[in-house]
Amino acid sequence: MTVKLVYFAWVRERIGKSEEDLDLPAGVVTVDDLLAHLTTLGEEYENALQFPDVIRVAINQEHVEHGEPIAGAREIGIFPPMTGG
């Protein structure tokens, strides 16, 4: 499955791009699987996602937990905890 990934704040800076379309292997089923898969793509991903517990994820622009299946996702946002307001 191909999905659009969008990155924000220090996740974006560490990975070095704000978005990309990625082909995911069949074994990537949940958000957890996706984060683990991304860390295999290079040092910059490893650096951005080395503490997956603090990473927040949104599927189709809605917050999800890390156990959420990603099937049907058009866009997955990956970012640090929010600090607006």
Binding site: F8, A9, W10, A58, H63, G77, F79, P80, P81, M82, T83, G84, G85
Partner: peptide, 28 residues
């Protein structure tokens, strides 16, 4: 609204230091 906005609306703040140094992202 403010309590939820701060913790779940997707905004992030980065500081720019007065001495011109590249600042850090503010931690939650």
């Amino acid at each position: 609204v403010m309590d939820f906005l701060k913790t779940s609306a997707p905004f992030w703040k980065k500081e720019h230091a007065a001495d011109g140094a590249q600042g850090d992202w503010i931690a939650a």
